[in-house]
Amino acid sequence: MATEAYNGGGWIATKLEWLINWGRKRSPWPLPYGTACCGIEMMCALAAGYDMARFGAERPSFSPRQADVLIQAGTITLKMAPVFKKIYDQMAEPKCVISMGACACTGGVFRTYSTLQGIDKLVPVDIYIPGCPPRPEALLQALLMFIEKTEKSHPIIHKKYSDLLVGT
């Protein structure tokens, strides 16, 4: 059976995949959705001391259509939640969500009537960064994790049907 024998991508497809992954991992344009304290640390990570731009994460795109990585830095309140969801929906595939800080991950100290207890209730989160707020280094590490994750993804070849369903 041809389908059984086919379990790799072949040379061209794998190299093309490598190339696409390389492009994607080296150019993660962020959508800096800094709502609270973590936003300031994200600014620090963008600025000269840490410089996220080294990884190609430059040109902060405030238009969701142009961004690859949604960095949710800070609390999402219930009033903000629909807006946030909309922003996520407007992003083009492949998209990645980095949930930066305790508030974005779990609600943090704000276990109150108006705070969303973690953005993973709304959108799928790829990378969580703990801390209140996390240091800029942690955000850089998250970018490295994004790179790792991208390297493992298969933009062309889907080895299993489950990959097709779940996405990578």
Partner: peptide
């Protein structure tokens, strides 16, 4: 006062290529 993109290729020279592919 910051390095700018320097990961893609030597001195980040392939950065535009990466952007293009992406």
């Amino acid at each position: 006062d910051r390095p700018g993109p320097n990961r893609a290729g030597p001195w980040g020279l392939f950065q535009p290529l990466a952007d293009g592919i992406k």
